[in-house]
């Protein structure tokens, strides 16, 4: 499930949630270039998803998906396995970010962020795991956030969800490891994507100045780490969190 397959070998299938933009799109591109056929999901950006699929010429197939939809993951996995093939890898990348001080956060806001960012990962894992166990093969990469390990004002709910992902990752790795299924997480550092476009410039400057590597973190850099963890190159690694932050937390 790793390197470019030979001319007659079937391409392994990976599912990337939130694959039409930012880190997700770079991951779809990296996986497709590495020999995967990629099913990827989009929620709002249909045109971008279609363009990506066209550009990758059959190596990427878009599916509509909302993290909050509790019944969709089971059907989504079924559709992908019918239309594209057995899912060997899952990248839980989709997420929803909305900042606000805890003291002003309504219950609905808390519930919504937790349900989308942590519940969505839980439901996607639950939907692919039985099939991976049956095939005794599979790799899952969950995309967490710096805010899971480094507090950021305004991100109590988002940070709680992203920290929850790390706990889920470690325990799930223990549950399914005996059947050859691996589960890992990544923490991207500050990556200039649309998702962080509203972060104030002075905050961006402070974050960037703490990086050890002046080049910072790119979506391609994060995608390369995700590809590594999804592929057999990391066959001996499970339950781990890989930080891609240009040395920000060093």
């Amino acid at each position: 499930m790793t390197t470019t397959p030979g001319p007659h070998a079937p391409r392994p299938v990976a599912l990337v949630t939130g694959g039409s933009r930012g880190i997700g799109r770079a991951t779809v591109e990296a996986l497709a270039a590495d020999g995967f056929t990629v099913a990827f999901t989009w929620r709002e950006s249909e045109a971008e998803a279609q363009r990506l699929a066209e550009r990758l010429e059959g190596r990427a197939v878009p599916f509509r998906f909302d993290l909050r939809d509790r019944t969709r993951p089971g059907n989504l996995v079924h559709e992908i396995e019918e239309q594209v093939g057995p899912i060997a890898g899952l990248v839980n990348n989709a997420g929803v970010r909305r900042d606000g001080l805890l003291a002003t956060l309504p219950d609905e806001g808390w519930d919504d962020l937790l349900d989308a960012n942590l519940g969505g990962v839980f439901r996607c894992c639950r939907s692919v795991i039985p099939r991976m166990l049956h095939r005794r093969r599979g790799s899952i990469v969950n995309v967490s956030s710096m805010t899971a390990v480094h507090g950021l004002a305004g991100q109590t709910a988002y940070g709680a969800a992203k920290a929850g992902i790390l706990g889920l990752t470690r325990s799930l790795a223990r549950e399914v490891g005996s059947r050859g299924v691996r589960v890992n997480a990544v923490i991207p550092g500050f990556v200039p994507t649309a998702m962080v476009a509203d972060v104030p410039p002075e905050k961006v400057k402070a974050l960037r100045s703490a990086e050890a590597l002046p080049a910072g973190v790119t979506v391609e850099g994060v995608a390369a780490a995700i590809l590594f963890l999804l592929s057999d190159r990391s066959a001996a690694i499970t339950g781990q969190t890989l930080v891609i932050d240009a040395g920000l937390l060093a």
Partner: peptide
């Protein structure tokens, strides 16, 4: 975990959908 594996085997054998939860 065996139960989950068996569940998928039953799905394939009988063409039925089973959600573990």
């Amino acid at each position: 975990v065996d139960a989950l594996e068996l569940m998928v085997a039953l799905e394939k054998e009988y063409g039925i959908r089973i959600e573990g939860h």
